[in-house]
Nucleic acid binder design. Structure first.
Lengths: 192, 192
DNA sequence: GGAATATGATTAACATGTTAAATGAAATCT
DNA sequence: AGATTTCATTTAACATGTTAATCATATTCC
């Protein structure tokens, strides 16, 4: 499969008409303006995650669950009841996604909802008996997959990976975000 | 495999107004049917990836690009032209997503398309001069972010992480997927 | 050569990610 | 108290992930 060839292509350009002339200002473009694509950290993390999730998806699908729905049920399985915001943090979901999924899970009878008496804004979510049974049905195969992965990769190596991922998170936690440099013609704030 | 029934309905439920903290604190109380939630490998990978991507998103957004669009442009920046299927593999996108994004990028004039003469089914994609200019505009800040991340996490540690992620992928590459066994849902548990 | 089949790409349909805005309720200020 | 502000959650709108179906072209088999 030769297609991926990030090497510089030399001057023998195949007669591209007016198009190629315009990149004359900065001709180094095609010669690796950035790091090699395969060394992108987000890519590496994504590929690793997909390599893992792939094995769980089939199992979850057989039980009518998506990955996110499973994350929610699993998180609910560990608590008596939990507020929506806390659940979003635990299951690592954004509010809007969580709202939609909770609506669906409630209609399916897998969770139950009420609201905090002292603050009607806050919603409390808990898992239903049906939801618990579903967890019990899914957990064994999920655990088996995990065990096989650990066996293949090595428990020590897996622990080390977890540590390095946590450390990465920690390293970037207080790194300043690119200060929202607005685009042009966006009158910033004449009145505030 | 007994897991957890709806037990221990926390008998001493106070109804005081200031009991907000106690409700939120009732998190890790049930006995878990599975591994601790925070030790989930997919979660750890997702969190790490998000910690990284967070910093790039703002920069890309300022240039009107999403993460996936940027992946495509970057991949195209390294080749003369590429078939759609190969591009999907490089940018790690599924066909349908790629189709939609290519349609959009073409309308924006950032890419160009034609088809293979000897096989009209195959589409060839290449970056346009405008696309190249956009890459040049985005690359510096992207590289700066990368450099700062490397400085914080450590270049050696980063290389080690890349290696471990690749090894994980390799370890799971030939692991058999859960062979689409049963889809039944009312036959294994009679407890309803 | 033409029907059957395979392949590359797209479209369809639905679930989620993502940001912005809206809604409803509590806290705060005057 | 009434207006304003803050907060928790949801809705809206659009982009993408994901699987299935479709479409057009290629290949194979008869």
């Amino acid at each position: 499969m030769p297609v991926n060839k990030p090497a510089a292509r030399n001057g023998a350009s195949p007669r591209k008409a007016a198009a190629r002339a315009e990149q004359a200002a900065a001709e180094v473009s095609r010669d690796m303006p950035m790091r090699e694509f395969s060394r992108s950290l987000p890519m590496a993390l994504m590929r690793a995650r997909e390599a893992v999730m792939r094995h769980f998806r089939a199992s979850l699908r057989n039980h009518g669950l998506t990955e996110q729905q499973w994350r929610i049920l699993r998180a609910l399985g560990g608590v008596e009841a939990i507020e929506v915001t806390e659940l979003a943090r635990l299951a690592y979901l954004l509010g809007p996604s969580l709202s939609r999924i909770l609506r669906d899970l409630e209609q399916r009878g897998l969770i139950e909802r009420r609201s905090v008496k002292t603050d009607l804004r806050r919603g409390l979510v808990s898992i239903s008996p049906e939801g618990l049974r579903l967890i019990e049905a899914v957990a064994p195969s999920s655990e088996a997959i995990y065990a096989e992965m650990t066996r293949r990769y090595g428990a020590d190596r897996l622990a080390a990976l977890h540590e390095m991922l946590s450390a990465l998170e920690a390293s970037l936690a207080d790194m300043p975000l690119p200060g929202n440099g607005h685009i042009k013609d966006e009158d910033d704030d004449a009145s505030l």
